[in-house]
Design a protein around this nucleic acid. Structure first.
Lengths: 343, 343
DNA sequence: TTGTACGCGTTATCAT
DNA sequence: ATGATAACGCGTACAA
């Protein structure tokens, strides 16, 4: 680990550190000659500007923080996260940002983490995901004027920068699909019940039932976490019912494969003949499970892309930020879990 | 975004900034009284130390860089990555570190990225993954005394801190399993051919063949990338052969599901009856595909954990670093892709 | 135990 | 177009 500084470069190039600094930041007001000379010396000395010093002086880190709520233990399991990360990464690449994954330090809750990385100025802005009801992170960020973009929705505020799908409509359509296949006893299995995305999907599900005059059965709405195990466990509950469902809407593919596993183990019911399955996020799991699962493609990679674009835009123009909400398309990918042989 | 500094805290608490600094870094030589007083003021003013200033002063960022080679486009697709991240994150949490995901900025190659985040001192150390032959990142890190740990192996140096499985032995055992099932025409499909993990697995595969006096057929070793599409494409090649394989070892689950997909589409061959499949990494894909896939569990989460532990240890004790190599267990998870009905 | 004063490496302001 | 100099906010010898 060497430590070539601007001073060294300046001295060898016979200029002042300000000049070197201007070369580094590609300032206009500098002659082509000195610029080349300085660049040459930088190359020769293998100079890299110290980013701490930079940040200290200009208040910018060129780092974006990606915050995932830890209440979802799946963060590092669910392919959704990875796809978002992929999208974010592709944009930060083009804009010379890096990504910070904040981790809950000893004794920290989610809000603490957010506060810390923002207030210690480790990052220039945040991408928040999977909002909850009365989400503290959103509230804090908004009240403290922290640049952020939400992937998802927020019920409390209307003027926050966000990117989302119309999950309610998607759930409505997905449920309607099952109804149109003749199913009436449709259950809804979800993860964290206070997550906005869950609520929206649940609402869409309910709307579909009501619109088709199907009575809502309370036993058919159960939730746990966004985990495979949760799906397995919750399906066990459903199988205990006297009046078992003939179709299930899952809030997530990961949950859905758990559900599927449980159904298979029962050896009594077949998918899709006895129980149809429909799910969300269209991850690789839905594509390769047996049977393949009908799932809503929410465009996760695009969610990450759009969110980081919006954030970086807001960071650049220091004027007023773009607090608009963007709604991305979704698409129901029909697969075997809702396809009967005679169709 | 406020900007409470030590000065503010010092003033209000009626002490000097050095005293505040000592409280922040939990210095011993300070009276309980003033400590409490300062802490109180910090709380009241909502003070957070500026991390740029800290880094500048003490040369530490408390950030670990996670470097994934971009030659594998799968980085953000392959569950392996996410599992490693999960392991890393669980350790950084306990040690008050955060994680930086470096992204290739415009015009940067992989080595450039590594150089940049290290030389600009954005991170204290690196976790490298998926090493290649004559890996430039490893060479650079070693030559410049950059604290790093490799997840994987390195052929050129013997004294670098690393965590890995015995992939050669695993491949040997996996291939032997197929041979013991009576298969003789065993192909090996891999990703990036210069990645060390590919080479090791290939070697183990070869060893198994040789030990069982099976002639090596050059047509049976093909490679592309660590992608589903690659598996699909490569399987198409194999199906064109006159002498088709009756078993395939895949270097990765993602590749394997692509292979499986292609086999199914052929409508001529069944897994495992006509073609057995065995793979690596035991991701959720292997567990839920149809048929389920026999795969080597390499303990990805543990790889991430051990690597970050080792790195953080080396960062803490500034003495001589632990350059040992740790070999983790692996386990072949047998599933339907190698299980005949009559067994 | 506490305070003073300087250094960390860069950017920004103000001259020239 | 270039240079001198003062921040930026914190850590740390050194002094008290």
């Amino acid at each position: 680990m060497q430590k070539v500084t601007m001073k060294d470069v300046a001295k060898l190039a016979g200029v002042s550190t300000s000049t070197v600094s201007r070369v580094v930041s590609d300032d206009d007001r500098i002659s082509q000659d000195t610029k080349e000379k300085v660049l040459e010396v930088m190359e020769k000395l293998n100079y890299y500007p110290n980013s701490a010093a930079r940040s200290l002086a200009n208040k910018e880190t060129e780092i974006i923080g990606l915050v995932m709520p830890s209440y979802e233990e799946d963060i590092f399991i669910n392919p959704f996260f990875q796809e978002v990360l992929k999208g974010v990464s592709s944009i930060t690449s083009k804009n010379s940002f890096d990504i910070l994954i904040a981790t809950n330090h000893e004794g920290e809750d989610d809000l603490d983490v957010l506060k810390r990385i923002v207030q210690t100025q480790r990052v220039d802005g945040l991408i928040l995901t999977r909002s909850k009801k009365d989400d503290e992170g959103i509230k804090y960020s908004k009240e403290h004027n922290i640049p952020f973009v939400l992937i998802g929705s927020c019920l409390e505020y209307d003027d926050i920068p966000a990117v989302d799908n119309d999950n309610k409509q998607a759930a409505y359509n997905l449920t309607s699909l099952l109804i149109n296949k003749g199913r009436r006893k449709i259950a809804f299995i979800s993860g964290e019940i206070n997550s906005i995305v869950t609520l929206k999907r649940y609402k869409g599900y309910l709307n579909a039932l009501q619109e088709h005059d199907i009575e809502v059965n309370d036993d058919y709405f159960i939730s746990d976490e966004f985990l495979e195990e949760s799906g397995y466990k919750l399906m066990s509950e459903l199988l205990k019912l006297n009046d078992k469902p003939d179709a299930i809407v899952c809030a997530d593919d990961l949950i859905c494969v758990g559900v599927l596993k449980r159904i298979k183990e029962s050896k009594k019911y077949n998918v899709p003949e006895d129980i149809m399955l429909a799910s969300f996020n269209n991850t690789i799991l839905a594509k390769y499970s047996n049977p393949t699962i009908t799932s809503v493609d929410i465009n996760s990679v695009q969610l990450g892309k759009k969110a980081s674009k919006k954030l970086i835009n807001n960071l650049n123009k220091k004027s007023k930020s773009d607090n608009s909400k963007e709604i991305l398309d979704y698409k129901i990918i029909k697969r075997d879990s809702t396809l009967l042989n005679n169709e």
